[in-house]
Write a protein that binds this DNA or RNA. Structure first.
Lengths: 319, 319
DNA sequence: ATTAAATATAGATAATCATCTATGGCATCA
DNA sequence: TGATGCCATAGATGATTATCTATATTTAAT
C-alpha cells in the first residue's frame, strides 16, 4: 500500500461514503460534487491496491479490505480530532507547561498566586526557579524561562514588563530595641548599629545600597547573610538591624518591630517580565491572565498594584 | 488545525525529524535533501498553527504541541502499518471470508477438504451453502457466492472451471437382492424394479435421466425423494433400487451392494466454478490453492482428478 | 576567530491534488 | 417505458505538493 500521498481529507471522504453507503449522499454531506467523491474513491482504492466498496443491492458496502480501512480511518481521524482538542487546550492555557523564575524575596508572596492558579489549572506543569537577582539575570540572559519576576528589570530591549505587587523595604529591629517605639527615626541614627545585609547580587541589597548612596550615607559594621529568613531571625535575636522586604515578615511578628525611619519604606515593585524574542507559552500567558484577574483575591490589598492589563494587551496583540 | 492537506508522508518526515533530533539526519535517513525536510516541517507547523520544534542546545526537541503531534503521528502511522499487514494477510489468503455453494451430493466429500483448510487458515470465515443443482444455479446467476461446485457447469460464458473430483454414479440394491452377486447386469433388467429417484432439479437425477434417454430406456415404477440419505436408507430397507453417487455410500455398507450394471458407473466430475465478472476474494483463491495442493491427502485417491492447476493459472493471470 | 555543520530561505519544476462541469450507462420505480 | 437518481468517466484547471539546486544565516566546535 502506498501511503505516501494519502491525505486525511481522502480518509474523511472515504469515511463519509462508507457511513452513508452512497457516493452522492457523501458528496452532499461534504458539499462536494458527486464526481469529486467518485474520483477520490478511485484514487484511494488505487493507493490501497484493493477494491474497497462493492455495490450490494443498491447500497455501497465495504469489502473486507474496505471495512478494515474504514476502521483505520475512523481511528486515525479520531486521533487527530483529539490532537485538535489538545491544541485547543494548549492554546487556552488549560494545559501545557511553563517555567517561572523568581527573585528570592518574591517567594514569600508568589505562592499565594500560584496555589490558586494550579488548583484552577491542574493540567499545567509549572516549574519555579528561585535565586537572587544576579542568578535570575543569568537565567534571563540565557532565555531559560518563560516568565521572570524582578523588582528592577534588566534592559527592556528584548522584553516587556508589567508591575503587579508593591515590595516595600522596611527597617526592622528587635522588640525592645532602643529605637523601637520612637515616633520618628532618622537613617543616620541607624548607622551606628550593626546592619545585617543580604549578599551583593541580591535585589534587596542593591536597592538599599543605591538608596544609601543617594543619601550620601555609609554603613558602619555589617554582617552578610544570603537569606532573608536568616536575617529576620538574626534581627529578632539581637544580632543587629536590617532593611528587608515587608513580605518577609510573618503576619504576626511579636519579636520584631518596624522602625519608622524617614525615607522608608523604600517603595519598589515586582513585575512580570516576558522576553519578546521567545514565544511565550500559552500556559504562561494563561498564568498572567489568571494573575491579572485574581490578584486582588490572593494578596493583601495594600500590596496589590495590578498593571498587568497593559502587559497582556501587548502580549496578545503580537503573539 | 487544518488537517485537510495533511499527508501521511508529512507525518513520516516529522516523526523522522523528532526521533533523530535533527533535520539533516532525518533527510539522510529518508533519502531527501535537507531543505526538503526543512520545508515540510515548516508546512506542517503552519498547518498545525503552533511551533513544533525548538532548538535546544544543538538538538531539536519538540515543543509541548510538537510532542503531542509526535505521539499522534506515531499512532497514526502505526495504525496504517497494521492496516498494511492486514492487507498482506488478506492478499495471502490467510484471512478474510468467502462463500462457497455446493450441490447436495458434494457435501459428502467437501468437508474432507474444508476441514483441513480451516484448520490451516483459522482466520478465514467460510460460508457454505448447500442445495440441489437448480438452487445452486439460481445462486450462481445472482452471483451470491465466490465459489461453486457443480458436476455439470452452466454456461461458462462468465465463468471458469476446474475439475477436481470424480463423481461416479452407481446402481445400488439391498444386500440379498436377486440381482446382487451377479457378474453382470443389463440396465434393462433393472427397469422392472421400482427405482428411488432424487427430485427433478437435482444433478444426480439429471444425469441419470439423460443417460436413460441416450440409451432409449424408460423407467417403470419410481419413488421420488429429495435426499440422498433417504434414498440410501430406502434402498437398504427394500423400497427399491437407486442410482446414486458413490460418495453417498459410507465406506462400509453391509446392507447395500453395488450392481455391476453395464454402462455404469456413470462418470461425471465435480468442478470448482468461479465467475469471471466478480472479483474472486483472496481467501477463496487461497482455498483453491489449498485444494490444489492437498487434495491427494484429503480424499481417497481413486476419486482424485486434480485439474486445478490450470484453473489457478487462469485466475492468477488476470486478477 | 575560523571553520565546519546545521538550518533556513529562495527560486524552480514536474507531479499530484481537489475540484469543477458535462455526459453516458444502469438500475429502479411508478 | 419513461423518468429519476446514482455512479463512472472524461477533460479542464488552479492550487498545492514534493522535490531539487544554490545560497544565506545561524550555531557549535576548535
Amino acid at each position: 500500500m502506498n501511503s505516501r500521498h494519502l491525505t486525511f481529507r481522502l480518509l474523511q471522504v472515504y469515511a463519509a461514503v462508507v457511513s452513508s453507503g452512497s457516493v452522492s449522499e457523501a458528496a452532499r454531506r461534504l458539499h462536494l460534487t458527486q464526481p469529486t467523491v467518485s474520483q477520490q474513491l478511485k484514487r484511494l482504492a488505487e493507493a490501497v491496491g484493493e477494491p474497497l466498496l462493492a455495490s450490494r443491492q443498491g447500497r455501497l458496502s465495504p469489502t473486507e479490505a474496505g471495512a478494515e480501512l474504514y476502521r483505520a480511518s475512523r481511528e486515525v481521524l479520531g486521533r487527530f480530532d483529539d490532537f485538535g482538542d489538545y491544541l485547543d487546550a494548549l492554546r487556552g492555557g488549560e494545559r501545557g507547561r511553563f517555567s517561572i523564575a523568581l527573585v528570592n524575596t518574591a517567594q514569600y508572596v508568589l505562592p499565594r498566586l500560584m496555589g490558586p492558579y494550579s488548583r484552577a489549572f491542574p493540567e499545567v506543569d509549572m516549574t519555579v526557579h528561585i535565586g537572587n537577582r544576579r542568578q535570575m539575570l543569568t537565567r534571563f540572559e540565557r532565555q531559560e524561562d518563560d516568565l521572570y519576576v524582578f523588582s528592577h528589570p534588566p534592559s527592556l530591549a528584548h522584553a516587556v514588563a508589567g508591575r503587579f505587587l508593591r515590595n516595600p523595604l522596611v527597617a526592622v529591629a528587635p522588640r525592645g530595641h532602643r529605637l523601637a517605639g520612637r515616633e520618628r527615626v532618622a537613617m543616620s541614627e541607624l548607622l551606628g548599629e550593626r546592619m545585617l545585609l543580604r549578599e551583593p547580587g541580591s535585589a534587596t541589597r542593591m536597592l538599599f545600597d543605591s538608596w544609601l548612596q543617594e543619601q550620601g550615607l555609609t554603613l558602619g559594621a555589617t554582617l552578610q547573610m544570603a537569606s532573608n529568613e536568616a536575617i529576620r531571625v538574626g534581627v529578632a535575636s539581637g544580632m543587629g538591624l536590617a532593611v528587608l522586604s515587608e513580605h518577609v515578615l510573618p503576619p504576626e511578628h511579636p519579636d520584631l518591630v518596624i522602625l519608622p525611619v524617614a525615607g522608608l519604606p523604600l517603595e519598589s515593585h515586582w513585575q512580570f517580565i516576558v522576553r519578546r524574542d521567545r514565544r511565550l507559552s500559552h500556559a504562561a500567558l494563561g498564568f498572567l491572565r489568571f494573575a491579572e484577574g485574581h490578584l486582588g483575591e490572593c494578596v493583601e490589598p495594600r500590596f496589590v498594584c495590578n498593571e498587568l492589563a497593559g502587559l497582556l494587551e501587548r502580549l496578545e496583540a503580537a503573539p
